[in-house]
């Protein structure tokens, strides 16, 4: 029974990512490599952050502001990292295009670029889920479960799985938005990603309050779903634009 519950938590967190992986990523070996390296980058960022915060932990006070600083620094650091990733991606894209020219294959399509961004985002998302949720799940496979005082409506594992799912969604699709924004020089797209990340991070501070998760989690899901919707809208717009341009060229 608890084994089933544990597997359930895992699937709740990673189910959508798994579906994305199987349908989009796994057919293209290069995307798997991108996914792995992006996961590694996220892990390294987490290690650096924890090395920085090691001095101050554990936070003894029950006030919220140390946590706010923690989340602020983390988000700033990771958003900075996204810029670095973009630079690296830019170089890689040139290399890929040069390679494609040499072997007389078509250059990267727009969809290819988006898929690379998706793989990168999925890597971040999966890393997040793995380190913040899955790695704590080990006890949930054993007998019994665990409740935290501040959110005693559901087992801790279930709550963290639910929160992680929202973050996986945010990480995955905000990478697509960000890369697209950088590519087009679109300022609003570039700024909305750190904003989303920061808002989502801040919303989890609500969980510190007693039964704050009742409020915090729905708000988090609103953020996640609007990220998804924004990303979908943006991709649709770009795809239709290029379609129109292509048909014009053909005429």
């Amino acid at each position: 029974m608890t084994l089933a519950a544990g597997i359930g938590y895992v699937l709740l967190t990673l189910g959508p990512s798994l579906a994305l992986f199987v349908t989009v990523i796994s057919t293209k070996p290069f995307l798997i490599l991108i996914l792995l390296s992006s996961t590694l980058v996220w892990l390294i960022s987490l290690i650096v952050l924890s090395g920085f915060w090691k001095v101050f932990l554990p936070i003894k006070t029950t006030t919220w502001w140390p946590y706010a600083i923690l989340i602020l620094t983390s988000v700033v650091f990771q958003e900075g990292l996204r810029l670095v990733l973009w630079k690296g991606y830019k170089k890689m894209e040139d290399m890929l295009d040069a390679f494609a020219d040499r072997v007389a294959k078509p250059r990267l399509y727009l969809t290819d670029k988006m898929q690379i961004a998706l793989a990168g985002g999925l890597g971040h998302g999966v890393a997040h889920a793995v380190f913040f949720c899955l790695s704590l799940l080990t006890p949930s496979f054993g007998p019994g479960t665990f409740y935290v005082d501040k959110c005693s409506y559901a087992p801790f594992f279930l709550v963290s799985a639910i929160i992680s799912l929202a973050f996986v969604t945010i990480h995955t699709f905000s990478m697509v938005i960000a890369f697209n924004g950088y590519a087009q020089g679109n300022k609003s797209d570039q700024l909305i990603v750190p904003a989303i990340h920061l808002i989502a991070g801040t919303l989890t501070i609500v969980n510190l309050a007693s039964s704050g998760c009742i409020v915090g989690i729905p708000l988090l899901y609103i953020v996640a779903l609007s990220t998804l919707a924004y990303c979908g809208k943006m991709v649709w717009k770009r795809l239709t634009e290029t379609q129109i341009r292509l048909t014009h060229q053909n005429q």
Partner: peptide
Amino acid sequence: GTSTNLMMF
């Protein structure tokens, strides 16, 4: 420490 406080980023 962070995730047992249900905080993530």
